[in-house]
Design a protein around this nucleic acid. Structure first.
Lengths: 343, 343
DNA sequence: CCGGAAAATGTAATCGCTTACATTTGTGAT
DNA sequence: ATCACAAATGTAAGCGATTACATTTTCCGG
């Protein structure tokens, strides 16, 4: 080594007067090294400010000590919460986290390589539809540890999934709206293909059925988990179906859009029309009126996914399905105010 | 290779009937390969679903094709915006992004290795104080490409910095408050040691001075970029200094805390007391009243940092300082309503 | 049809580490 | 002291790519 290059394990070994194997043992705490030798090696490491080459380590040891996370997007409120949970768990287990956001970009079709794979990670958390079925199946066929977050496995395959009780939460919320006296309840749906969204709609439908109310397709409009899309759809809805008395949006973002549209139409929430969301995102408590919504344990889902993956890596086994409970958060947008500790 | 292991470049070479060197040339598009050979190699790659081992590539090529980002925290609104800018630029240049959040954890003091270093990245973006001066200097001494984001270089060192005009923004906002007729203007400061926060306070002070107003230390209270801390401080402030007529918070989070405290005290915003924030975070437009604030070009800062780093890696040179302009966003919390396109 | 330069391909050393195995050193019972 | 065995350390063979250099093939002008 010289001034411009970086010290290697051989430099450390030489300075400490031991072999590279011993240095490696000290670094990896793999035992059978004298306290005295450990001290000498550590001194050499400190003196040279040596850092092991991770590529070389991975290559030689066939372990990356790293968890990969593949996600369609990185910069939204939902993902932020999720990430906090994942990160925490990953670091607790002394793994590193690598994140790759696909942003809907297709993979290179000539040489189809994921930037995160078995070479640089020991396992992958796949968030929603960031990886297509075919690739998922290939990874699975090679026994690469995989945990799915908010998406179910491709047909015919079994891999551990983590999600929360979307259907139950939506069911409870719909029941709550009905209990509040509403009958013409519209639903602002989520993106096509998004499983969370699908289950939420399903919960809405089942609650109506259970309470003897018909599902009117004209009352289900697209929201795409997006405020602007939802606002447009709701504006149209209010026009064509002026007699609705409640709107249940598939997520808080579309609830926000719905709120804007309702207000635009001159109606008041909750006096003229009730509004409910889903997620209990950071925003929901700052809306006016504060939004009644379903709390989704997003951070807990992140923790669970990471924990399942690490368990899978270590033991080869994980729970096929982790379903986290959701919870009604009653604020003011449906006309009920409960006195509790809620802000 | 067998069923459980993964194909290597040798497997591809064998199947395509060429040498590993040729396969490597195809993968890296390094030229001088027949169209026919390219096709054969690509077919083999596809058939085997081969993916190059990134560790081995980095080891052999001494290039990581990766940018590292070190940040104290990953899950806040500010960081989310920043990340979007960084990501976009990094991917545009066909680099990969690795993120490491320190969460204030100290490094392993025995073997002080950053999880992101010259072995797995070609350069680093250092966000605020996630890396201490000593380590920064060591990296710099080895000519490792570094760009600082929202922090200045350690004394005696020169490395490219990206930040925005905190002082000017705060100056303008303070001037705006003065123009609105306010005289007793309090300041909710940010975390000690945070440079953005320091410059914002400086801008506040200078604006007061320029307009002939004295800086009253009793009107400067700690907010720590945190709503709860700010609420506590402002509650106390309103008690001891009941005659203040405006509060300028160092960021939108503390403005939110201040708003809660003001309301708690029975005063109204903006009628009884004006309130301003800084950042124009997502939240600020949903507060009631919508918050007048300073728009910080966070995403642009992320883009600039990534662009500077990539330029530094390629050319060895980058701008010593990139200062992005801030902009007043007048909403309703200071009592002025401008008619414009603002939501 | 030939010779030589350019293009295409192959050979093998190398990157920095881990680890199986070999060797040396240390320990306690006899 | 001696021996058996455990603990500590060393030796050297990979891990899977890249790339300098060597070799073969192709292409053209004369």
């Amino acid at each position: 080594m010289n001034a411009t290059t970086h010290p290697t394990i051989a430099d450390v070994a030489q300075r400490a007067g031991v072999s590279t194997a011993t240095v490696s043992r000290v670094i990896n705490k793999s035992g059978n090294v004298t306290a005295d030798t450990i001290a000498r090696v550590q001194a050499a490491i400190a003196a040279l400010d040596y850092a092991p080459h991770s590529g070389a380590r991975i290559l030689a040891s066939r372990r990356a000590r790293t968890i990969g996370l593949i996600t369609p997007t990185i910069s939204d409120l939902f993902f932020t919460d999720l990430l906090r949970g994942i990160e925490q768990t990953v670091y607790e287990h002394e793994y590193t986290l690598l994140i790759h956001a696909t942003h809907g970009r297709p993979y290179d079709d000539i040489i189809p390589m994921l930037p995160l794979n078995h070479h640089n990670t020991d396992g992958l958390i796949i968030f929603t539809n960031s990886v297509d079925d075919a690739r998922l199946q290939k990874l699975h066929a090679r026994h690469f540890p995989l945990v799915l977050l908010h998406r179910s496995p491709p047909a015919g395959t079994a891999m551990p999934c983590v999600t929360f009780e979307n259907k139950d939460g939506a069911f409870q919320m719909t029941a709550h709206l009905i209990a509040c006296g509403h009958r013409r309840i519209a639903f602002v749906s989520g993106p096509a293909g998004n499983e969370d969204a699908g289950w939420r709609e399903q919960g809405y439908r089942e609650a109506l059925a259970v309470h003897g109310l018909a599902v009117d397709p004209a009352l289900i409009v697209p929201g795409d988990f997006n405020a602007v899309v939802a606002a447009t759809a709701v504006t149209h809805l209010l026009h064509t179906q002026p007699n609705i008395d409640a709107i249940f949006a598939a997520d808080d973002e579309s609830a926000r859009g719905a709120l804007a549209a309702i207000r635009q139409s001159g109606r008041r929430v909750p006096q003229d029309i009730a509004l409910a969301g889903f997620d209990d995102s950071l925003l929901s408590q700052y809306l006016h009126p504060p939004l009644t919504t379903v709390r989704a344990p997003i951070e807990a889902a992140g923790r669970a996914a990471a924990a399942q993956l690490i368990q899978l890596i270590h033991t080869g086994h994980a729970d096929p399905l982790t379903l986290l409970p959701t919870e009604l958060v009653i604020r003011e947008s449906c006309g009920w105010v409960l006195v509790n500790s809620e802000q």
